[in-house]
Design a protein around this nucleic acid. Structure first.
Length: 218
DNA sequence: GGCCAGGACACCA
DNA sequence: TGGTGTCATGGC
């Protein structure tokens, strides 16, 4: 329905590169992706800062924390019982794999997404975030802002993650850096123009879409 | 004081 | 496969 290359270019032209995922290391991305689940980034950032101070994101130090210690560090980002289990399960898995992302990717291959989904606390979105930002694979992330956007773009079934994931895949021309930036741009756009559905029409994207639809009718 | 924010899971029919 | 309740904090 929508040319994703055009969408990406339009977002990029108007907003510049997104710089996503905002983190200094893959480990920070992994922790951030778990901590930000169903909360705002500010709360997740407080937990990340505490984790960094206590462990410097070092796997052995994090895995050596007791559950109560871990919970105390991540409490500000909410759902701390779930997220502490998720961190332990995900970090345990990466530790077992040896933290060599590209090697893991090549070894596991096409079953990687399924294997990630088997980890406690990793659902559809977090699995795709890992694929895109940790394993450097071009994958479509159908998170809530993305679903709101595609709903505005005319897609009918956008209620669940899988609804949209089933309908949309990235063009072959997208490499992993495009996938990273594309997702970052959509979320940056969404924070400004998709929290209130009425705002979309007045956005640069809303106006571009209206213009294109107008041209189509000619 | 209610609503929301870059979800996931258990349980049920 | 789909629907619902639960998990929890901080900002507005």
């Amino acid at each position: 329905m929508v040319d994703l290359s055009w969408l990406y270019q339009t977002l990029r032209k108007n907003m510049g590169p997104s710089g996503w995922w905002p983190a200094d290391s893959k480990q920070e991305i992994i922790l951030g992706a778990i901590l930000v689940q169903n909360t705002n980034w500010q709360n997740a950032a407080v937990s990340l800062k505490a984790l960094k101070k206590a462990t410097n994101y070092d796997a052995k130090q994090i895995l050596a924390l007791s559950n109560d210690q871990l919970i105390d560090l991540i409490r500000p980002s909410g759902f701390y019982k779930n997220k502490s289990k998720a961190i332990q399960s995900v970090y345990g898995w990466f530790e077992k794999q040896g933290w060599n992302y590209h090697q893991v990717r090549n070894k596991i291959g096409k079953d990687l997404r399924k294997e990630l989904l088997d980890l406690h606390g990793v659902g559809q979105e977090t699995a795709d975030v890992f694929l895109v930002y940790v394993f450097d694979l071009p994958e479509f992330i159908a998170d809530s802002y993305t679903r709101r956007l595609f709903k505005q773009l005319g897609y009918k079934k956008t209620k669940t993650y899988r609804d949209l994931k089933f309908q949309v895949s990235l063009p072959d021309s997208f490499d992993y850096k495009d996938a990273q930036d594309f997702h970052g741009l959509i979320d940056n756009f969404g924070k400004v123009y998709l929290r209130d559905p009425a705002k979309f029409a007045g956005s640069f994207l809303g106006r571009e879409i209206a213009l294109r639809n107008g041209r189509k009718r000619l």
